[in-house]
Every structure is written in C-alpha cells, then in structure tokens.
C-alpha cells in the first residue's frame, strides 16, 4: 500500500504529497501542544491549579490568575511557540534543500549572522554609562538584517553556474566563522555589561517577551509559514537531485532562491525575538520525518508543531527546574540537541 497520497487544490494547479495518516498524527501533536500550553501557564514561580488555568483560558478566573496567565506567561509562551515553529520550518526547508540531514540554520551561519548584528547593535548604540542611545525596539530589525546579510553572502559566494547544495553548506560554515570572529571582536571592544547582555541573548531565551513582541512576530511568522507551506512542494522534487528535478520541469535555481529567502525570513524573526535557540531547526524536522514521512505537505506543519513544543518545553524547564535561577532555553535545546545529533550521525549511512 502506498504511504503517501496527493491532494490537489485550485483545480489541480497546486498539489501536495501527504502522508495518509497525517491527519490523525497532527491531531495528536496539536493535543500535546495544548497540554504543554496549559502546563506552561500553570507552572512557574507562582503555581496555579489546572482548573483555574482552564477557567482563565475561557475568560473567567480571578484578576490575579488573569494577570499571571495573560500578562506574565502568555507572551513568552507565544513567542516561544512562534520562534520554535519558525526555526523548525526553516530547518525543514534547509534540510530538504541541501539534501543533507545535518543542515540547520545554526550550522549554515544564519543564526551567527543575526547574532553578530545584535552584538554590533548593542556595542554601537550604547554610551559610556552603558545605556542604549536608541530604542531597544530596533534590535529585532538588526537581527533580521544580520541573518539576511549572512544568507546573501552565503548565496553569492556559493554561486558558480548555480548553487550546489554541498557548496552552500561549506560556504555557510565559513561565513559563520567570520560572523563569530566579528561578534567576539565587538564583545571585547564593547563594555562588559553589554557583553553580558549580548551573551544572554545569544544563548537564546524568551524571558521578558511582551505582547508588543508578539504583535510584531506573529504576523511575520504566520505569513512566512504560509508561504513556506506553498513553496514546500518544490522541496520534494529538489530532494531528487538537480538533474532529475530539472528533467521533471522544476526551475531549480529560482525555487532554491525563494526557499532560502523564506528560511532566512523565518530565522531572522525567531532570532530577533528569542535569540539563538540552537538545534531546534536540526531536531524538529527529523522527529517530524519519522512521524509523518518526508512528503512536505505534512512534514512542514508537523516540524513546526514539534519545534514549537521543543522551545516551549525548554523554556518551561529553564524557568522552573533551577528556581530562583532562570536558565536560558537555548541551553536545554543544546543539551537535548547534542545527543540527538550524535545519534543521528551514528544512524546515518
């Protein structure tokens, strides 16, 4: 029996390949995500009971419950959710694109570009008394700008009668090293207070997220995710290899450029609001692939859901396990991601 079936929309103009049982599996993922949301809302410095949380969700609850859930916890949960989705989707796209299961935004240098831009921003726009001279609101834009510059550099340098996947990854590693050097340099030249601040950011945390952040990140991520979902059908054919894809009528280079732009946009948004939360873009697509197969119609949404859960769980662990210390979420994703990565390497043929 075939595992995948195709769905056609708009009288066959757009078609998706999708795992036959994807629907059920996605429902389970959604349920898990909701449970995690509830737990996230209930746990922390102040503990709420589950009934109280449900009550608050549907609009009831005491003023205090409302305050804790909606003002303190919800914004960072939503930012974690969106950042996780974005990173995971970007990772899924990149892995398909370079036909390498180990590719992810952190390994090919997009995250490093964003990080360097953030440190640069903090160094350039601060005065002697360590205060920022411009609004912190501009910081996310700087992060996105950095990721875009890195992506552009990688793409341009990798271009040689087209962009081969292998070259793309290698150049990415080189560019990441350069960004790292720039970042270190800026951190040493800047005042130590800013260095510490930048370092917290770079490890990845959603601590201190507000509804204002959500208002910017949500539309950005949702639009890009939708676009990625539509463009993702190209990934499946790219996975066959350039020659086959060209023979099958795919405009390989254009689609690759489009997909890279989408991935960059997703990463830029996520890094801007949550910092460099590593290994999510690597792990989530793999987990999703085991669950729903490699047909992108289901893989992309499943990756996004798993990514969201990973970041939310990491944040939950970070703010509950070591109270009163708050450990950045990025430490946990790296802690899970590293062993997972080594497992992947051993499994790889």
């Amino acid at each position: 029996m075939k595992r995948y079936s195709s769905r056609r929309l708009f009288s066959g103009r757009i078609s998706f390949l999708i795992d036959k049982h994807a629907g059920k599996k996605m429902a389970v993922l959604l349920l898990l995500l909701f449970l995690l949301l509830t737990a996230s809302a209930a746990l922390g410095d102040i503990k709420l009971s589950l009934p109280a949380v449900f009550h608050t969700f549907i609009g009831g609850g005491t003023d205090f419950d409302q305050l804790v859930v909606y003002s303190f916890r919800m914004p960072r949960m939503v930012v974690a959710l969106l950042a996780g989705m974005a990173l995971a989707a970007a990772g899924a796209i990149l892995q398909g694109l370079v036909r390498n299961p180990l590719a992810s935004p952190d390994i090919i240098g997009l995250t490093a570009g964003a990080s360097a831009a953030v440190v640069g921003f903090l160094t350039i726009f601060s005065n002697e008394s360590n205060a920022l001279t411009v609004s912190i609101q501009w910081l996310p834009l700087a992060a996105f700008f950095g990721a875009a510059v890195a992506a552009l550099a990688i793409y341009l340098f990798a271009w040689k009668n087209g962009v081969s996947p292998v070259r793309l990854v290698l150049i990415g590693i080189g560019v990441a090293a350069l960004m790292q050097a720039i970042k270190t340099m800026l951190m040493i030249l800047g005042p130590i207070h800013q260095a510490a601040k930048a370092n917290i950011w770079l490890t990845g945390t959603v601590n201190g997220a507000s509804w204002k952040d959500v208002a910017v990140l949500a539309p950005w991520t949702i639009v890009l995710l939708a676009a990625a979902f539509l463009a993702a059908r190209h990934v499946n054919i790219q996975e066959l290899g350039d020659e086959l894809a060209v023979n099958a009528g795919a405009r390989v280079e254009w689609q690759r450029l489009l997909l890279i732009i989408l991935a960059t946009g997703l990463v830029g948004g996520a890094v801007a609001f949550a910092g460099g939360i590593g290994f999510v873009g690597l792990m989530a697509p793999h987990m999703a692939r085991r669950l729903v197969g490699s047909a992108f119609g289901a893989l992309l949404p499943a990756s996004a859901l798993i990514g969201a859960m990973l970041v939310m769980a990491a944040d939950l662990a970070g703010r509950t396990l070591f109270l009163p210390l708050e450990v950045p979420a990025g430490v946990f994703t790296a802690g899970i991601g590293a062993p997972y990565f080594i497992y992947l390497l051993f499994r790889m043929k």
């Binding site: 590719a103 290698l170 990441a176 590593g278 290994f279 430490v331 790296a334 590293a338 990565f341």
Partner: peptide, 17 residues
C-alpha cells in the same frame, strides 16, 4: 566537516549558557 561544525556549535552553546 558538517559534523565538526555541529560539535563546535554544541560546545559553544554550552559555553555561552
């Protein structure tokens, strides 16, 4: 090369944490 880059990323992530 990729494996090395990922190991490097892992170590520097822990370092930053």
């Amino acid at each position: 090369t990729l494996a090395g880059a990922a190991i490097a990323a892992m170590f520097s992530s822990f370092t930053q944490g």
